[in-house]
């Protein structure tokens, strides 16, 4: 009899605690989620860039989601350079053909994959980009060749809306 009583009490208390814990969790979530990107930030996910004025060998930097995006119209030499590298020589092997679908155009996030600085254009040992913060060298395809950065500069989702307009995101 007394055993049964204990069980029932345990069940009541356990149930109360469990239901209470669910409520605490449900209350905490909105306080955490409010720090995630809000609806207006998410809505600005794509941007269109007019690239008609870009001549070969020139780069423009545009802002997308608060980050710089490099759009470079590459010269024949640069393309040849980028495509001739053996994958074995790369720290983060990736074919240039996969990074630049249209070889003339390289579109990538201008953010060093080391700690997030913006690399400098036409600098470094590989004639691509050089990050002044901690000395990472990128080649003409934006791939990491030397220095502390672990991976290549990221290529965002983008498409040519027409011959002169690139839509990023």
């Amino acid at each position: 009899m007394s055993e049964k009583k204990t069980n029932r009490r345990d069940f009541l208390f356990t149930a109360t605690y469990a239901v209470g814990a669910v409520g605490v969790g449900a209350t905490v979530w909105p306080m955490i989620d409010q720090m995630n990107p809000d609806a207006s930030v998410k809505a600005l996910a794509s941007t269109e860039v007019d690239v008609s004025s870009l001549t070969p060998g020139k780069t423009i930097t545009v802002l997308w989601r608060g980050k710089p995006v490099f759009i470079r119209r590459r010269t024949e030499d640069e393309i040849a350079d980028a495509r001739s590298v053996k994958l074995d020589d790369l720290k983060d092997p990736e074919k240039d053909e996969d990074r630049a679908k249209n070889p003339e155009w390289l579109v990538m996030l201008g953010v060093c994959t080391h700690l997030g600085c913006v690399p400098l254009n036409d600098k470094g040992d590989y004639n691509g980009w050089f990050c002044p913060c901690h000395g990472s060298h990128y080649d003409t395809s934006g791939r990491i060749r030397k220095g502390p950065a672990p991976t290549n500069m990221e290529v965002p989702k983008y498409e040519f809306v027409n011959a002169n307009t690139i839509k990023i995101g």
Binding site: T16, V19, V22
Partner: peptide
């Protein structure tokens, strides 16, 4: 939810 929890707490 609050009503259910209130009832549980009441019996506890």
């Amino acid at each position: 939810y609050l009503i259910i929890l209130t009832i549980l707490v009441y019996f506890s």
